[in-house]
Amino acid sequence: MASYILRRFIGALVVLFGISVITFIIAYAAPGDPARLIVGAKAPQTVVDAVRHNLGLDQPLPIQYIHYIGRLLHGDLGFSYHNNLPVAELIGQRIGNTVQLALASWIVEVILGLPLGIFGALYHRRTADYILSFLTLVGMSMPVFWFGMWLIQNVAYGLGILPLGGVGGISHLILPAITLGVTNMAFYQRLVKSSMVDVMSQDYIRTARANGVPAHRVVTRHALKNGLIPAVTYAGMDIAQLCGGVVLTETVFNYQGVGQLAWQSIENLDFPVIMATVLIAAVFVVVMNFIVDIVYSLIDPRISLS
């Protein structure tokens, strides 16, 4: 176990290093001048050059990257050109909101997706299964921003029972969580269904049925445990994506999270914030991949960490 964790840790560092290089190069190659953004469009060129020098933007690209990595190792994510605040402070103000939304959305996905997946497997190739497959296809194809605006128009504004957007109590989480949960639960449903259909055709399931094991125990004690492995994989990546910030949903609902911050930074060419949000999303993905591998071994002891 210790050697496996060490290997994965080294691999994670390599991945994060590669992502930092790519995002740094992309930010450097993007059009626009951060120094001009800071001082304004009407500032004289001498002022712009002075700001560029103070920020180190006039140095060679490799030197800039070395300084960037050095700051990261000390926990310094940089300074926001647009907000005039440390990037770590900006993200710290919003990361909690994004995590709350991510967990709420994931709960909606699981509550809807897992039972519907089991239902589709039990009624495979029957009328109920065809209807459910059509509905899940609609859910997978439905644009997130369209569904979010539809909920705002018809539920928040039309019925007046929930806030139009923003951050607050649980009521502010409901519509964004439903938006993400309904559009993403279709993937859980299809994964669980296809996996369960495959497992239900295995010899040990037929043996359990022949021995008179009740149908509900065959599903819950034998089929479901092995059928959940693909769903666990998707769950890990899904949680990582949600915690990294869901740009469209947070923007539609004016939800002050990391996703909305990333979008605003792209609009304002705020490169330090853009690079920081990408790195945070990458960290979530790497960590969740590691957790998924551990959960694999707990679900199915036949899977070896070696």
Score class of each variant (00 low, 15 high):
Ile10Cys: 12
Phe17Arg: 11
Gly18Met: 01
Val21Cys: 12
Ile22Cys: 03
Ile22Pro: 04
Phe24Asp: 06
Pro31Asn: 06
Gly32Val: 03
Asp33Arg: 04
Ala35Leu: 09
Arg36Pro: 01
Arg36Ile: 06
Arg36Thr: 01
Leu37Thr: 12
Lys42Asp: 14
Ala43Glu: 09
Thr46Ala: 15
Val48Tyr: 08
Asp49Lys: 12
Asn54Trp: 11
Leu55Glu: 08
Leu57Val: 05
Leu57Ile: 11
Pro60Leu: 12
Ile66Val: 14
Ile66Pro: 10
His67Trp: 00
Ile69His: 05
Leu77Ser: 10
Gly78Tyr: 00
Phe79Ala: 11
Ser80Met: 09
Asn83Ile: 03
Asn83Glu: 13
Asn84Ala: 13
Ala88Ser: 14
Arg94Lys: 12
Gly96His: 05
Thr98Ala: 01
Val99Gln: 02
Leu112Met: 07
Pro115Cys: 05
Pro115Glu: 04
Ile118His: 08
Phe119Val: 11
Phe119Lys: 00
Leu122Asp: 02
Arg125Asn: 13
Arg126Met: 11
Thr127Phe: 15
Ile131Pro: 07
Phe134Ser: 14
Phe134Glu: 12
Gly139Leu: 01
Met140Gln: 14
Val144His: 09
Ile152Trp: 06
Val155Leu: 04
Val155Ser: 02
Leu159Lys: 13
Leu173His: 06
Pro176Leu: 01
Ala177Met: 02
Ala177Cys: 03
Leu180Pro: 05
Tyr188Asp: 07
Val192Ser: 00
Val199Trp: 03
Gln202Lys: 12
Asp203Gln: 15
Ile205His: 11
Val213Gln: 01
Ala215Pro: 11
Lys225Met: 04
Lys225Ile: 13
Asn226Met: 06
Leu228Gly: 05
Gly236Met: 09
Met237Lys: 14
Ile239Ser: 09
Leu242Thr: 06
Cys243Tyr: 03
Glu250Pro: 10
Phe253Leu: 10
Val258Pro: 01
Leu261Asp: 08
Trp263Pro: 08
Ser265Arg: 09
Leu269Ile: 13
Phe271Glu: 01
Thr277Asn: 02
Thr277Gln: 03
Thr277Cys: 14
Leu279Val: 02
Ile280Ala: 02
Val287Gln: 01
Asn289Tyr: 01
Val292Tyr: 05
Val292Glu: 07
Ile294Asp: 00
Leu298Arg: 13
